[in-house]
Design a protein around this nucleic acid. Structure first.
Length: 392
RNA sequence: GGGCAGGUGGCAGAGUGGUCAAUUGCACCUGACUGUAAAUCAGGCGCCCUUGCGGCUACGGGGGUUCGAAUCCCUCCCUGCCCA
């Protein structure tokens, strides 16, 4: 990681660039802040983008301050939302928070980290103080945010509480004396709030690095509510496959945002793609890189081989889940349900009709024949191209 | 407090007495093709029964009108918008 990459890779915008370059050049150890609200239990590759940037700061000797939004999580940020985010209960937040740090430490160096919870300073804050902070901003600023304006225009509710959220995030920066704050591009407004508040509290305003966001497996922004996420806790095989299923046009973005492949290599790959390289091969490399980050090189290699076996060569995976079921007579549909390969018999019949069901390598065309299950059958069931279960 | 609009399948969002198990989009599943679980194309996408112009359950909850309701009425709950 070069100092050059620090300010370019994955970066959408830097405010104030000159000042930040100066700070970095001065040799001073900067306090670099990232806030995460525990809105779900799992971190995904989109969350990981700013975490990797933090890691780079760590490597260059700066102090990383990870602010867990145990308080802001209760309130709920709407800057990345198309509708009001529901307020969470303290229990939900506590549950979600449990694994957050553990997951984040897959990326960050735990020993060079300052971990803070923002209830520490937000909870005791009085109304007067909040009013003073709120006085620094105009309602019009908030209302003109793109997604807020859109919701208002569509006749949807925008609660007053949402307008308060940026103050809290901004005050976090004051509390931890941040020199730099990171965030996704849709956080821009909240990030800027920190600058104003710091000034009000006689601190030097933090610089801001906004990062591009990662696309999900369906081509929309990666977000838990879209259900298109690749979680950093996903199993190696699963993670590999999900990466392989992204659209070709996102390959370069993924390499930039979700891997540590050097930028010059990235430009090389870009050239190769343009001159007719098979995107599948590049994507395989991408998937290996990503899986390596979270599961290690060995698992990545295994996942890659496994994937090639099952999908390129259409062979069976080396590990087929085994399932024991009650001995007796089964129709194919009830067999599939018993094996967990179909949610209902109706679904199973549909799969049969569509030619997606194989038993012991033979395509099943109808549901009439009865199968006797004795309890030692070793019968291979297959649905689609990638779901296998062995009845034992 | 007053006025108005609305609550439909995982989500978004049609439908306003029968042909609605419910248009469409997204997500998802299967098949074909391929360079891959990409793209594209085709089909599917409530449950049950041996497969039928079959049965059951379903359009916020409850009750009613009707031969028949997601669609009409009553009531309850909830949500949003406007005004104060």
């Amino acid at each position: 990681m070069t100092a050059q990459d620090l300010l370019t890779r994955g970066v959408a915008e830097i405010i104030d660039r000159k000042h930040l370059e100066q700070q970095l050049g001065s040799g001073k150890k900067l306090r670099v802040k990232l806030g995460i609200d525990p809105t779900g239990a799992k971190l995904h590759l989109g969350h990981a983008v700013p975490l990797w940037k933090l890691r780079s700061f760590q490597e260059l000797g700066h102090k990383v301050v990870l602010v867990i939004g145990d308080f802001t999580g209760l309130i709920g940020d709407t800057s990345d939302k198309e509708s009001e985010r529901p307020m969470l209960t303290e229990k939900q937040v506590a549950d979600n928070m449990k694994d957050y740090f553990h997951q984040a430490s897959k990326i960050l160096d735990k020993d060079k980290l300052e971990l803070r919870y923002n209830s520490e300073w937000l909870k005791p804050l009085g109304f007067l103080e909040i009013a003073k902070q709120a006085n620094l901003f105009g309602l019009h600023e908030f209302l003109s945010r793109e997604n807020i304006a859109r919701r208002l225009k569509a006749g949807k509710n925008v609660s007053l509480r949402e307008a308060l959220y940026p103050l809290m995030q901004g005050y976090d920066s004051v509390a931890v004396k941040a020199d730099v704050e990171l965030g996704a591009i849709d956080q821009r407004f909240n990030l800027l709030t920190g600058r104003t508040l710091q000034k009000f509290y006689n601190q030097e305003s933090q610089d801001i690095i906004t990062l591009k966001y990662l696309m999900g497996t369906d081509g929309r922004k990666m977000s838990k509510s879209w259900g298109n996420v690749i979680n950093i806790s996903d199993e190696a095989d699963d993670m590999f496959g999900k990466v392989m299923s992204i659209e070709d046009k996102f390959i370069l973005e993924y390499l930039e945002l979700a891997t540590q492949v050097p930028m010059n290599e990235l430009r090389q790959i870009e050239k190769e793609l343009k001159t007719g390289a098979n995107p599948r091969d590049i994507k395989k490399r991408l998937a290996e890189e990503i899986v390596t980050l979270y599961h290690g090189k060995k698992s990545a290699a295994t996942a890659s081989k496994e994937w090639a076996k099952v999908f390129s060569q259409k062979e069976k995976p080396s590990e087929i889940p085994k399932k024991k079921i009650q001995p007796g007579s089964y129709t194919v549909s009830s067999l599939l349900v018993a094996a967990g390969l179909a949610g209902s018999k109706s679904e199973a019949r549909r799969l049969i009709d569509q030619g997606g069901v194989k038993i012991a390598d033979g395509i099943i065309k109808h549901d009439k024949r009865l199968w006797e299950i004795k309890g030692n059958d070793n019968l291979l069931l297959q649905v689609g191209k990638r779901k296998f279960v062995k009845i034992v």
